[in-house]
């Protein structure tokens, strides 16, 4: 049970993130929801990479034990970096939209439709 805690958290955060994305009408809140969902994915990647009793693959003064390939950690770092870039760009878009439309409400940002 306690070993599954990270995965349960992942499920919980995923639901919170997706619910925020579809239910909130404020663009900033939608982006927050997107970031929450992204946090869930990152937590998922980290938790699948955990091995009981494994040690980091640093060969200098290494203690005896099973070394773990740090691929999931590398994936998570990459994903965080991409997430920062995406969020920065989306927030820039929201700023420009606010300047031109005077609102961040998705119901009123629908010049392009039909």
């Amino acid at each position: 049970m306690i070993g599954n805690l990270p995965l349960i958290t992942v499920g919980l955060i995923t639901v919170i993130g997706l619910f925020t994305i579809v239910s909130k009408r404020n663009l900033i809140k939608i982006l927050m929801g997107l970031n929450i969902f992204e946090a869930a994915v990152n937590l998922f990647l980290i938790s699948i990479g955990y091995r009981e009793g494994g040690i980091a693959p640093i060969y200098t003064n290494a203690v005896q034990g099973l070394m773990v390939l740090p691929t999931p950690q590398a994936l998570t770092l990459t994903s965080i970096v991409i997430g920062v870039a995406t969020t920065a760009m989306l927030l820039a878009f929201v700023t420009i939209i606010y300047r031109n439309y005077g609102t961040v409400d998705t119901d009123r940002i629908r010049e392009l439709r039909e």
Partner: peptide, 29 residues
């Protein structure tokens, strides 16, 4: 602002899709 509106919709949906893809990659790993 209209072009930015189109870009925002494109970027939010793309990010959403890419995150799901990453989730699937995690499942495979």
């Amino acid at each position: 602002g209209k072009a930015v509106e189109g870009a925002l919709k494109f970027a939010v949906l793309s990010t959403m899709g890419a995150l799901l893809l990453l989730f699937a990659v995690g499942i495979f790993y």
